[in-house]
Amino acid sequence: MDAEITLRVDGEEHRLTVDTRTTILDALRERIGNTSPKKGCDHGQCGACTVLLDGRRVNSCLTFAVAHDGAEVTTSEGLAENGELHPMHRSFIEHDGYQCGYCTPGQIVSAVGMLEEVGNGWPSHATENVSAEGNAGLSDDEIRERMSGNLCRCAAYANIVPAIQYAAEHGEGVERGGNA
């Protein structure tokens, strides 16, 4: 069964007819031609498909497009502005926060979404005391836990953590969460 929807992807509006069974991930990859988010498991178990959906990081593989008519979707491709790489992009390159590159766009989108969550004062499993006032800060352990929804079989994790720390510290326009 088909439905007409509009998705705003990386700032550009797309009207399309989708099968109700089509996920945002497949709509992006097979219909719109945006293959920045990847299909690693198609079941919300790896994070390679992470996009910002109306500003929040989600697994686009578990999201029916039909249920998100009018939504704003940001992929890693869309983080680049006017051909300029985003500070998180540059930091991943510099810190070699990837090898095969397949989980990477999802990691980067996730990192950008994560910093905003930290900035909003959201706690994590790594936060010592969830009841405490104030912000959890951005320790390496906080990053590790908050980025655990993005699997990397090449295991670039120990480079991803400093890549995110660096971008948070130095990246212009990157939200610096926390008071650490």
Binding site: G44, R56, R57, N59, V130, G149
Partner: peptide
């Protein structure tokens, strides 16, 4: 929730991933 029912906050934060919790 965090101050009056911290077990619920902790339980949620130990579940799934940040992406899934956002959905």
């Amino acid at each position: 929730i965090r101050s009056r029912y911290p077990a619920i906050s902790e339980a949620l934060l130990s579940g799934a991933s940040a992406q899934l919790r956002n959905m």
